[in-house]
Amino acid sequence: MKGFISIGLLILSNTFMTLAWYGHLKFKDLKGFENLGIISVVLISWGIALFEYFLQVPANRIGFREYGGPFSLLQLKVIQEVISITVFLIFALLFFKSEHLRLNHVIAFILLVIAVYLVFKK
Rank of each mutant, 00 (worst) to 15 (best):
I107N: 12
F4A: 14
S98R: 05
I90H: 04
I79Y: 01
L19K: 03
W46E: 10
Y53R: 13
I48K: 08
T86V: 05
H24W: 15
R61L: 15
Y22S: 13
I114S: 02
I7S: 07
L89I: 04
W46D: 10
L89F: 13
F71V: 13
F27T: 06
H105A: 04
T15M: 10
F64R: 01
F64K: 06
P58K: 11
H100V: 13
I39C: 08
F27E: 10
M1A: 12
Y67I: 00
G8C: 14
V119L: 01
N35Y: 11
A49L: 12
G47F: 03
K28N: 13
I107K: 03
I5Q: 12
H100I: 05
A49S: 14
L30G: 01
G68Q: 03
L93W: 00
S6Q: 02
G3Q: 05
F27W: 14
V113M: 11
A59Q: 07
Y117V: 12
V78F: 05
V116Y: 02
L10H: 15
F120S: 14
V41F: 06
Y53W: 15
E34C: 10
F4D: 01
L118E: 12
I110R: 11
T86Q: 02
N104S: 15
I44Y: 12
L74F: 06
L43G: 02
H100R: 15
